[in-house]
Amino acid sequence: MVISKLMKMQNNEPEVIQGKGYLVEITRTSRTKTASLKVEDGVVMVVVPKKLDITKIEKIVADRHVWIMSKIALHSTATPASNKQYVSGEAFPYLGRNYRLKVLKGDLGPTKLINGRITVSIPDITQQHHYIRRFLVNWYKRNALKKITEKVQRYEPLVGVETSVIRIKEFKSRWGSCTPYGDIEFNWVIVMAPNRIVDYVVVHELCHLLHHDHSPQFWKEVERVIPDYQECKEWLKVNGHGLVV
């Protein structure tokens, strides 16, 4: 059932094989000795031992084809995560500016921002829109790590702190979190907001390394670096729920 074609992705995107009507995203890890399949948001994913041969992965997927199709069908009847159609010409914000999506049908390739368009190259498959969303999210996550890391490095000396590890995650109801050890996690969705809002979120988390609460001293520290932080805070309150892919 699986078309024997492995697509090596660039920019840390996952390995992908093409099945009959769907793609399969491969995650290799040394933390497992067995393969496991799941369908999440309409996207088929398989987690396998790090050095498992690709032909064995293809057989695992082929043997579970009926199960995979049933899960995809079940997802198609669920309520969509957003009202996006994932078609060429649709707008997606990045750092406060809207960029048009350009979908190219053909060999799978890395998602890129080219000439003012977010370009996704994908085979002509049945469940195409699920994968376009998946590749867009991966693109946002990569760029969020790069952009937020730059901003953290810029604001560290202004706040007077040093960070340890910067991670990009997906939170349901917050924009970031930190630990007393200097580890900071940011919600990748924030890079859809204007630059100044991203600055505020970065400074907010950096200030938590000085004050682990929302005391007057904490907000005074935020205001010292971001004088208009109240406007940024209000912007997120009003517009944050609309930052969706």
Rank of each mutant, 00 (worst) to 15 (best):
Leu104Ala: 07
Leu104Asn: 10
Lys105Phe: 14
Lys112Phe: 03
Lys112Cys: 11
Leu113His: 13
Leu113Pro: 12
Gly116Gln: 00
Arg117Thr: 09
Arg117Trp: 00
Arg117Pro: 02
Thr119Lys: 06
Val120Lys: 07
Ser121Asn: 05
Ser121Met: 06
Ile122Gln: 04
Ile125Asn: 11
Ile125Val: 14
Ile125Lys: 05
Thr126Pro: 10
Thr126Ile: 11
Gln127Val: 15
His129Pro: 00
Tyr131Glu: 06
Ile132Ala: 12
Arg133Cys: 03
Arg133Phe: 05
Arg134Tyr: 14
Leu136Cys: 13
Leu136Trp: 00
Val137Cys: 01
Val137Thr: 12
Tyr140Ser: 01
Tyr140Trp: 06
Tyr140Asn: 01
Lys141Ala: 10
Lys141Phe: 04
Lys141Met: 14
Arg142Ile: 06
Ala144Leu: 00
Ala144Tyr: 08
Ala144Val: 04
Lys146His: 06
Lys147Pro: 04
Lys147Trp: 03
Ile148His: 05
Thr149Ile: 05
Thr149Pro: 05
Thr149Glu: 15
Glu150Phe: 06
Lys151Pro: 03
Gln153His: 15
Arg154Asn: 11
Tyr155Thr: 05
Glu156Gln: 15
Glu156Phe: 08
Val159Tyr: 04
Val159Pro: 03
Gly160Lys: 11
Gly160Glu: 01
Glu162Ser: 15
Glu162Cys: 09
Thr163Ile: 13
Thr163Val: 14
Thr163Leu: 12
Ile166Arg: 06
Arg167Val: 10
Arg167Lys: 15
Ile168His: 06
Lys169Tyr: 13
Lys169Gln: 08
Glu170Trp: 07
Ser173Lys: 15
Arg174Val: 14
Trp175Val: 10
Gly176Asp: 10
Gly176Tyr: 07
Ser177Cys: 05
Ser177Tyr: 02
Thr179Asp: 10
Pro180Gly: 05
Pro180Glu: 07
Tyr181Glu: 14
Tyr181Asn: 12
